[in-house]
Design a protein around this nucleic acid. Sequence first.
DNA 1: GTTATGACGCCGT
DNA 2: AACGGCGCCATAA
Length: 109
Amino acid sequence: MPAREAGNSERIWQVVAAIPPGHVATYGAIARGAGLPGAARRVGAALRGLPAATRIPWHRVINARGRLSLPEGSDAWRLQRTRLQAEGVEFRANGSIDLGRFHWDPGQA
DNA sequence: GTTATGACGCCGT
DNA sequence: AACGGCGCCATAA
């Protein structure tokens, strides 16, 4: 029997859903929180497959550099940025987020 | 079975 | 700081 099912997306979504409003989490942190260390790329794939009307707060997931990984200028990029700002997350002039202030680690949950 | 593909991450230059 | 290269893991071709 397969030690780990391929349907890890479920677990990933669960961790993402736990990110408190006004905070963000990196892809790597989500992967670790889901028990999938090193599978940061899987997190992006899982979010990529979410329906547009999902209630999962996918916009709270950013990369380790404190930047949005979506193509800058795209609709999704703007939506993510808008939602985060609406929650109180501040963007620096260069477009990055201060992880020291806004990053949330699944481990504390 | 092999190779290509990504909403990633880390390290060296 | 900017860039490039390599590692990572699961899917798809």
